[in-house]
């Protein structure tokens, strides 16, 4: 399959990817529940948007929805995903396959399980290349080796012949990144790419992603639960809670002056940000299951500022930069 190179955007400030009003729903007894509800954001060339939130908030589902890979029985209920202005949600699977791994590529959390254990990493990278470019096996192989070399794997020629289990965790994630980048995508979705790695290796992988981005100017959607990591890589941050984006803003202002009570809580509860010892500020309660969310603002049952209005009416989701989804934002 040969896919045309992505059409260059006429206006460099025009977003590469624009997501709006995205719902991902699952059928439950007598109806459906939205695991992702009205999510909107845009990715710009050369910039990184971090989607941050706790487990179960819908951040990974959002990423999979962009690629049309929502696992059954979930489905995209509403919304639009536009890549260079082209609507992806209405494309059939065949057309979407031309985009996946080619224009929009993805890196996952667990490089051990995300690589196929029975094929060499070289074969898996070459496969990604041949799915989108007409190339001989030999050409694809050479491309894979040069990509492995490019992501900092020494002795790439030989390492290409290694099976995933023969590589260390850091090497595997480099191989994953090589596989994602071999078709020179202009959007990279990185879903918790360093969560399974040790902290010194995490630093190397973050450097690698930033270096690759600098080199080819791709837009990065960086998904993480770790605000520390997010603060190291993000230009913009969207905070997700219970299926919606509750706050979306440039990273610097988010960490300097968080406006949503949930964002504030997340930052304050980080053990590294407070003086040692003593009690950590804590957010009471747990993230609600997506089938049993509270009425009104989803955070109202855990929020110290919530009043009757918060429990009755949902604030509009934060779908663009500088927005916050809270009736009490900026309250003292």
């Amino acid at each position: 399959m040969t896919a045309a190179a992505p059409a260059p955007s006429p206006d460099p400030a025009e977003p590469v990817l624009r997501v709006a009003g995205l719902d991902v729903s699952f059928a439950i007894d007598g109806g459906s529940a939205k695991a992702v509800d009205g999510v909107g954001f845009q990715l710009t060339r050369g910039r990184t948007l971090a989607l941050v939130g706790e487990s179960g908030c819908g951040k990974s589902l959002t990423a999979l929805a962009v690629l049309g890979l929502v696992p059954r029985p979930g489905r995209i209920g509403a919304g639009s995903v536009r890549y260079h202005g082209r609507e992806l949600t209405s494309l059939d699977d065949r057309a979407l396959r031309g985009i996946r791994g080619n224009a929009i590529a993805m890196v996952f959390q667990e490089p051990m399980t995300s690589l196929n254990p029975v094929y060499t990493v070289g074969d898996q990278i070459a496969e990604a290349y041949r799915l989108h470019f007409s190339a001989s096996a030999r050409e694809a192989r050479a491309e894979a080796v040069s990509m492995l070399d490019h992501v900092g794997i020494a002795d790439a020629q030989n390492r290409a012949r290694a099976y995933p289990h023969q590589l260390s965790g850091g090497m595997r994630q480099r191989a994953m990144i090589a596989m994602a980048l071999v078709c020179r995508p202009d959007v990279l979705i990185a879903d918790e790419p360093t969560t399974a790695l040790d902290v010194t290796i995490q630093g190397q992988i973050l450097d690698l992603i930033l270096a690759m981005q600098k080199e080819n100017g791709m837009a990065v959607l960086f998904i993480s639960h770790d605000l520390g990591v997010v603060s190291e890589v993000a230009d913009d941050v969207a905070v997700m809670y219970a299926g919606t984006i509750v706050e979306q803003t440039p990273a610097a202002s988010l960490f300097a002056a968080p406006r949503h009570p949930y964002t504030r809580g997340l930052i304050e509860t980080l053990p590294g940000t407070t003086p040692p010892g003593g009690r950590l500020p804590a957010i009471p309660g747990v993230v609600p299951d997506f089938r049993r969310r509270p009425k009104g603002c989803r955070f109202s049952d855990r929020c110290s500022l919530a009043d009757g209005h918060c429990r009755d009416a949902s604030p509009p989701p934060a779908v663009s930069g500088g927005a916050v989804s809270c009736w009490k934002a900026d309250a003292p």
Binding site: L69, A128, L131
Partner: peptide, 9 residues
Amino acid sequence: RTARAKGAG
């Protein structure tokens, strides 16, 4: 999931 994300049919 990785294979599908690569664009494999």
